[in-house]
Computed example of a mutant assay.
Amino acid sequence: MGASKNIPYGRQCIDEQDLKAVTDALTSGWLTTGPKVAEFEQAVAEISGVAHGVAVNSGTAALHAAMYAFDIKEGDEVIVPPMTFAASANCVAYMKATPVFADVDPETLLIDPDEVEKKITSKTKGIIAVDYAGQPCDYVALRKIADKHGLFLAADACHSIGGSLNGEKVGSLADISLYSFHPVKHMTTGEGGMAVTDNAEYDKRMRIFRNHGITADFRQRDGWFYEMQDLGFNYRITDFQCALGLSQLSRLPEWVARRRELAAMYDREFSDMDGLSPLGKLDGAKHAYHLYVINLQGENRSEKRKQVFSYLREHGLGVQVHYIPVHLHPYYKDNFGTHEGLCPVAEKAYEGLISLPMFPQMEDADVEYVVETVRKALAEV
């Protein structure tokens, strides 16, 4: 297998083009919200197949802004999956509403439309679907449910920019879709996020929300006058971050293509390896592979995962686990009465999940090393 390597599970790529873009922005006269923000918003909206983009300072802020756009209030319920980062549910709690957890499909770990239907009550206002690992959810089924019950449909697409479903681009599959530009994602602005939508009213509300609830931005100011129309937040992003985002966006297609190549290599090696299985794929979905996740099989999976995880870390692989089901976190147990057994499919899956290295700068030899290290780990536990 050769000498041990040091391969993280994800890593940003910054080159001279990015450095020049940021330097140019820093010396342009604009530092905070300026023309590069609008340019970046337009470019991301375009590659998403929608009319509007609202850039903010994180994916979490984008989720929060979407809940504001949907006018979520105390007493409302919003259905979310448990197999995600906590922010996907926290954004509902920020509005003093109740996240209601619907279990996931055992093969894909995407929210299960049948489970969503079971969770709908008179208080339900919407659904947040999460494109776990980079695979779009079954938005055809989810849209039918949302339309049947008069619900909004949001896409937490923080893992799936560059993907598609049945030929329709990620970003155009829901009423509002949310992106993250954290460094381990497909492209980065350092920290940052965006909400994209075809709905002009949602776009307007999110723009106000990200700027303290104030209506004026740099294009609208007329002397001293502005109005605070609602209680918003300072979720603005800087011009130089958006300059970096524009530079990164130009290479997104090639980076997503490389992620798919790496995933295909993993798939070939793991398809018949005893003791684990890759995640299933949804018909019609083009996966963007933010993560490549394996699920360990067999008895005592939780203990086995602990041992395999430690072995891989000891041999230079920066593996991770995505995710502890959100409803198992103490905050949700204490404040929303969630408990073990609420989402049994997600809970069982969690016991065996490991995220392997996945980023475009990986070489074929890196994949070979990861596969061989996993094989040896399974043989030793």
Rank of each mutant, 00 (worst) to 15 (best):
G2Q: 11
K5R: 15
G10Q: 11
R11D: 10
Q12V: 13
Q12H: 14
E16P: 10
Q17H: 13
Q17C: 15
Q17L: 13
D18T: 15
T23Y: 13
A25S: 14
L26V: 06
G29P: 05
W30V: 11
L31S: 12
G34T: 07
Q42P: 09
A43H: 10
V44L: 11
S48Q: 06
G49T: 03
A51M: 14
G53V: 08
A65Q: 01
A66D: 07
K73G: 07
E77S: 13
E77N: 14
F85V: 15
A97D: 02
T98V: 08
P99K: 01
F101R: 00
E107G: 04
L110G: 04
D112C: 03
E115V: 06
T121N: 07
K123G: 12
G126W: 01
D131K: 08
A133L: 15
P136N: 07
A155M: 07
A157R: 06
C158H: 06
S160E: 02
S160W: 00
I161L: 12
N166S: 07
E168G: 05
V170D: 02
S172K: 01
L178C: 08
M187P: 03
T188F: 10
G190E: 04
M194Q: 05
M194I: 12
A200Q: 15
E201H: 08
I208L: 15
I214Q: 10
D217A: 09
E227N: 13
M228D: 14
G232S: 02
R236L: 11
F240A: 03
F240M: 06
C242F: 09
G245T: 04
S250I: 11
V256A: 02
R258I: 13
R260P: 00
E261M: 15
E269T: 15
F270R: 02
M273V: 10
P278R: 08
L282F: 10
G284S: 04
K286I: 12
A288H: 01
K304F: 05
Q307V: 10
L312V: 04
L317G: 00
L317A: 03
Y323A: 06
L328P: 04
Y331T: 09
K333E: 08
P344Q: 05
E347S: 03
E351C: 13
L353K: 03
L353V: 09
S355M: 11
L356M: 08
F359G: 00
M362K: 01
D364I: 12
A365R: 09
D366I: 05
E372K: 12
L378F: 07
A379E: 14
